[in-house]
């Protein structure tokens, strides 16, 4: 099947031509839906375009970028996003691994547990954010009532209106929604481990901890890396949850919520476009770093 290894026959050339025709519509759609807007964003980022009238603008070179790099609000949005990303991805991977191990064991009702794990993931993000916003309500929220009853806090807290707590709340909501998804990914890898490996380890006298380190972990490591990459990319663009919970107030402004504020609320299309591209670059650098790390690992193992 490998083309190029021999001269293509007439039939193969015909098939390839037909294939090109079948790919073309999708490529055209990619061009129209993503590439043109991306190029347009690049162009706009060098202009002073306003949202109300995108056509009338003048070229201003790198001014937007220069301004952005010294914009303290953008700087703090980057820091907040990185803090959110670090905390949420770490917690999701740890809890995801734990939940996967729990779902993998044999017990009655395991099917029900797996179904339950799909629930947070299946609920739309905006809905889960609204629901948690009500649960975290300072006066009527069930979270305060529950924690006060358990004497974990002395009086009701304003979760979403206190700097620090607000970001922690955003993290909690994200972890609740995403951990089960990570767990299901890991569960797939766990199920692929042959039972004999555990038997052999047991015969060799390996305890539970050593079996986990030497049998389980190496088998789930590849999927863990993929999960970390995907979750990181997702976390860096967090928007929905923050928009609904706090609108970016109380130290929760992320790169994406700040960017949308620039574009839509301040109607600053040029500046907003520059911000979009900087975010693009940040996300690109992070993915490239991960991919390099993966490649390195594959060489080692």
């Amino acid at each position: 099947m490998s083309p190029g290894s021999h001269r293509p026959t007439g039939l193969e050339a015909r098939r390839a031509r037909a294939g090109a025709g079948m790919v073309a519509p999708a490529l055209l759609l990619v061009l129209v839906s993503a590439i043109v807007p991306l190029l347009r964003t690049v162009w706009l980022s060098f202009t002073d375009a306003r949202l109300a009238n995108p056509g009338a603008h003048s070229f201003i070179g790198f001014d937007n970028y220069r301004l952005l790099l010294s914009d303290p609000e953008f700087g703090s949005a980057v820091v907040t996003t990185l803090r959110f990303t670090g905390a949420s991805v770490l917690l999701e991977i740890l809890f995801g691994l734990g939940l996967a191990l729990l779902l993998h064991q044999r017990y009655r009702g395991r099917g029900w547990m797996r179904a339950a794990a799909l629930v947070p993931w299946a609920i739309p993000t905006v809905v889960s954010a609204q629901l948690w916003k009500f649960m975290l309500n300072d006066v009527y929220g069930v979270a305060n009532d529950f924690l006060v009853r358990l004497h974990l806090i002395e009086e009701p807290l304003a979760w979403l209106a206190t700097p620090g707590l607000a970001l922690a709340s955003v993290i909690v909501v994200d972890v609740w929604k995403t951990t089960p998804f990570i767990a299901l990914l890991i569960l797939g890898a766990l199920q692929a481990i042959p039972e004999e490996l555990y038997e052999a380890a047991r015969i060799d006298g390996a305890g539970a901890v050593r079996r986990f380190r030497h049998v389980t972990l190496p088998h789930v490591a590849p999927i863990l890396l993929v999960a970390v990459l995907f979750r990181t990319l997702d976390a860096l663009r967090i928007f929905d949850t923050i928009y609904v919970l706090t609108l970016g107030a109380f130290g929760t402004e992320s790169m994406a919520t700040y960017n949308r504020r620039l574009l839509v609320d301040f109607m600053d299309l040029g500046y907003g476009a520059a911000c979009s591209l900087l975010i693009f670059v940040i996300v690109g650098v992070v993915s490239a770093a991960y991919l390099l790390l993966f490649a390195r690992r594959e060489v080692v193992t």
Partner: peptide, 18 residues
């Protein structure tokens, strides 16, 4: 494409849809 953030084309897409 599936990796780049949606926000990266928000401004360009806005102008393009118009």
């Amino acid at each position: 494409m599936s990796m780049f953030p949606q926000i990266a084309i928000l401004g360009g897409l806005f102008a393009w849809l118009r």
